[in-house]
Amino acid sequence: MKKRLLVIDGHPDADPARFVHALAKRYSDGAEQGGHEVRTIKVAELGFPLVASRVDWESGDLPPDIRDAQDAIAWADHLTILYPLWLGDMPALLKGFLEQVMRPGFAFVAREGKLPEKRLKSRTARLVVTMGMPALFYRAYYGAHSVKSFERNILRFVGIRPFAHVLIGNVEGNASARAGWLDDLFDFGEAGI
């Protein structure tokens, strides 16, 4: 089944040498090979302020890049979100992007005396997280807390599920391991997952 796939490259550094960018490109290449429709958002190339108050978040002006990102998310069947682990969590620019894009009225609607209405149901997601430490150590010792928080507090809150994640450790390691991960991302894209 052909899908509408959105790739969100969450690396805050636009330098093309960053491994996250290569992974995002391979996923997109695989998706195109698989006959899927693909769109890409590169967070490092967007212009938007950080949300600084509740008023900003609930009713502040929506920057054009954020409006375009919301349109792409609304269009998509599946989101693949890639980012490097920085200080144990997603980079601040990606968090700022998510705070802008997942605003009330778009991603959810508050309801008096009830849980919010989840507006992004029927979408699935995969997180791809790179890190310098071994992925097994991050999962075993730190409990993959950033990934769990992203899945529970953002994706599930707005109705995106099911979701999967891939942890890629030792990114500064050997080239053959990186080549294997690039092949895996191509395969995920081709399969639309």
Rank of each mutant, 00 (worst) to 15 (best):
V38G: 04
R119S: 04
D77T: 06
R26K: 13
K148M: 05
A17K: 08
W57H: 08
S176G: 04
Y83G: 04
L79W: 04
D183F: 00
L155N: 00
L5S: 05
R123T: 01
R18Q: 15
P162K: 04
R156F: 08
E172R: 10
V20A: 11
D68L: 05
F108G: 02
F97N: 02
G169S: 06
R26T: 15
A164L: 04
L136I: 11
H21Y: 09
K121F: 03
Q100C: 04
A177Q: 08
A72L: 09
F97A: 03
L23D: 15
E58Q: 14
H11R: 12
E58R: 13
A52E: 14
L167P: 10
S176L: 13
G47W: 05
V109R: 09
E112G: 01
D15T: 10
V158A: 03
S149G: 05
E172I: 08
D184K: 11
L136V: 13
R54I: 14
D15L: 08
E32A: 14
L79R: 01
L6P: 04
P84H: 10
H11G: 11
F163W: 12
D15S: 12
K118S: 03
V171H: 04
G30H: 07
R111P: 00
F150W: 07
L50G: 12
L50N: 11
R18M: 13
M1L: 07
E190V: 06
Y138L: 10
P16Y: 06
D71E: 08
F19V: 11
D15P: 07
L167K: 05
W75I: 07
I8K: 03
E32L: 15
L167C: 11
Q33G: 04
A14W: 07
M131A: 15
G105S: 03
A164G: 10
L87Q: 13
L46P: 06
V158T: 10
L82F: 15
F97S: 03
G60M: 08
T124Y: 01
H78T: 11
H165D: 12
P64S: 07
K121P: 01
N153S: 05
R139A: 13
A179K: 10
E99H: 00
A31Y: 06
A14N: 09
M1V: 12
P91I: 11
L62M: 14
A74V: 01
M133W: 12
Y141V: 14
V55M: 09
R123D: 01
L115C: 02
I193F: 06
L5T: 04
V43N: 05
A140R: 09
Y141T: 05
Y27C: 09
A191Q: 12
R161P: 00
A144G: 15
S59D: 06
H36N: 08
R123W: 01
K25R: 14
Y142S: 10
T130I: 11
W181N: 12
L120Q: 03
Q70V: 00
M102I: 03
W181D: 15
G96E: 02
L85V: 08
L98F: 04
